[in-house]
């Protein structure tokens, strides 16, 4: 179920799809469901589909929480199949990544009484996605990565 007025472009050939999602939490949940229901990701084996869902959820939630912390905007997700797997391109017009690079995703230390409740997102993204690239261009954040298909 797409969450805005632009439908998922998901033609008979399941090679690519594009979805624009409003940059807030509820829309991201619904947008994620729409992506997962699209043919390109439905065709993946269960494990790959689970991984795709997790990586996309982390990426989209980070955009809502950080990039759009001060103003709202849209998130444009394009998925396409290529020789290396599923290429994911995610664009937003929010704040740039701190220091112009995505976080290293180092796991926070797990210590007895003071267990971390956050800081896992980029660790999961970097553990599960490949060929991650980020650039800032024309006021947009452009993140690209591959998921194994």
């Amino acid at each position: 179920m797409p969450t805005d007025n632009r439908p998922v472009r998901d033609g008979p050939c399941p090679a690519a799809l594009q979805l624009t999602i409003p940059g807030h939490a509820e829309a991201v949940s619904a947008g994620l469901r729409a992506l997962l229901d699209a043919r390109l990701l439905r065709a993946l084996p269960d494990e790959g589909r689970g991984t795709a869902e997790l990586v996309l959820a982390e990426v989209l939630n980070n955009i809502v929480e950080h990039a759009y912390a001060r103003h709202s905007g849209e998130i444009e997700v394009t998925l396409s199949r290529d020789a290396g797997g599923i290429l994911c391109e995610v664009a937003d017009t929010g704040l740039p990544m701190p220091q112009g690079v995505p976080p290293a995703g180092q796991l926070p230390p797990l210590e007895g009484d003071n267990l971390p409740e956050g800081g896992f997102g980029w660790h999961l993204i970097r553990s599960l996605a490949r060929d991650l690239e980020y650039r800032r261009e024309g006021g947009r954040n452009l993140l690209r990565f591959r998921l194994e298909s």
């Binding site: 689970g50 997790l54 982390e58 939630n61 971390p116 409740e117 956050g118 997102g121």
Partner: peptide
């Protein structure tokens, strides 16, 4: 079937 880093953080928060 699905738990993301926010869900994980919530389970940790419950434990704490």
């Amino acid at each position: 079937a699905f738990l993301d880093s926010s869900g994980l953080g919530a389970v940790v928060a419950v434990r704490k």
